[in-house]
């Protein structure tokens, strides 16, 4: 991808998230408290650093964007109010909005269901795995 395209995407990520990654003091608390840490290729502190330095191409293809639980732990516990989860979400939105097929297609929903699964799981998955 051209650097100019990446710069444009970086601007989008900053504006969609409302995050200022320069506030980060690199303490690592966001990743230390992340309940999905073991599932992620890139961790919350890396999202902050990579967006800050413009090194975003790898973020656009990582499955880590689907591992964030939106539990607000990193948002709550960041001592500098950087709010890393908002960056993870913004990268996910940029990826989902660009692609043709969605990460989760409606016809693949029934196979995930069982008799007890709450509607809440389905609507949340739709919100997080699609545009």
């Amino acid at each position: 991808m051209l650097q100019s395209e990446l710069n444009k995407i970086r601007d989008d990520i900053l504006s969609i998230s409302g995050v200022n990654p320069r506030k980060c003091m690199c303490c690592g608390k966001c990743s230390g408290t992340c309940p999905s840490y073991d599932e992620m290729e890139y961790h919350p502190h890396e999202f902050v650093h990579m967006v800050e330095t413009g090194d975003i191409e790898a973020l656009l293809s990582t499955k880590s964007i689907y591992k964030c639980l939106s539990c607000f732990a990193c948002i709550e516990r960041c001592p500098r109010q950087v709010e890393p989860a908002k960056l993870v979400e913004a990268v996910r939105m940029v990826v989902e909005r660009q692609r043709g097929p969605q990460h989760l297609e409606a016809e693949n929903v029934p196979e995930q269901l069982d008799d007890d699964m709450p509607q809440q799981a389905v609507v949340s998955a739709f919100r997080k795995y699609r545009k």
Binding site: S15, S70, E89, V123, R127
Partner: peptide, 8 residues
Amino acid sequence: GGTYPLAK
């Protein structure tokens, strides 16, 4: 919608 839409 089950999840707060974080994107501004």
